[in-house]
Simulated scan of single mutants.
Amino acid sequence: MKNFTQIGAAGYIAPRHMKAIKETGNNLVAAFDPNDSVGIIDSYFPDADFFTEFERFDRHIDKLRRRGQGVDYVAICSPNYLHDAHIRFALRSQAHAICEKPLVLNPWNVDALAEIEAESDTRIYNILQLRLHPAIRALREKVAAAPKDKIFDVDLTYLTSRGHWYHASWKGDVQKSGGVATNIGVHFYDMLGWVFGPVKHSVVHIHDADVAAGYLEYDRARVRWFLSINADYLPEQAKAAGKRTYRSIMIGDEELEFSEGFTDLHTVSYQDILSGGGFGLEEARACIETVFNIRQARPVGLTGDYHPFCARVKGR
Rank of each mutant, 00 (worst) to 15 (best):
E260I: 09
D190M: 06
V110A: 00
H207W: 08
R16D: 11
N106D: 11
T122S: 12
Q271H: 06
I273S: 02
A168I: 10
L156K: 01
E141W: 02
T24P: 00
G185R: 05
D155F: 13
L302S: 10
E100F: 00
L256D: 05
V203A: 11
H266F: 15
D210H: 06
K200F: 02
K200R: 13
K101Y: 03
I40H: 05
W225F: 15
K200N: 14
L28C: 08
A311D: 15
A213L: 01
Y73H: 10
L139I: 09
E23L: 09
K148Q: 14
G252Q: 00
C99R: 00
P107S: 04
L113V: 04
L302Q: 09
A168S: 10
I273G: 03
R16Y: 13
V203D: 13
T52D: 06
E117T: 00
R59Y: 12
A240W: 04
E115L: 11
G252M: 03
A240D: 07
E100Q: 11
A48M: 03
L234T: 08
R244M: 08
I229Y: 01
L302C: 13
G8E: 04
T290F: 11
D264W: 08
L103W: 00
S169Q: 07
L82W: 11
P34E: 07
A90M: 05
V204N: 02
W225G: 08
G11W: 11
V154C: 10
T52N: 08
Q237D: 13
P308V: 09
T267Y: 07
V199L: 15
S169M: 10
F279D: 02
V204E: 06
F54K: 07
E217S: 10
S93T: 09
N3G: 08
L265I: 06
D36G: 01
G39K: 01
A209R: 12
K19H: 13
P299F: 05
E236L: 03
Y189K: 12
S202T: 14
H86P: 02
E254S: 13
K19W: 13
I124N: 02
D153C: 10
D208R: 15
L265P: 08
T182I: 02
V199M: 15
K19D: 15
A231D: 12
T290I: 12
F226C: 04
S275A: 14
P235F: 00
R247D: 10
R220A: 15
V38C: 04
N27M: 13
G68R: 03
F292D: 14
F258Q: 06
A114R: 07
N106K: 14
P46N: 05
N3T: 11
D58M: 04
A213S: 13
Q175S: 13
T267P: 09
H266A: 14
A231Y: 06
F279G: 03
G178I: 08
H133S: 00
A48R: 01
S161R: 03
A209W: 12
H207F: 10
M18R: 04
F45Y: 08
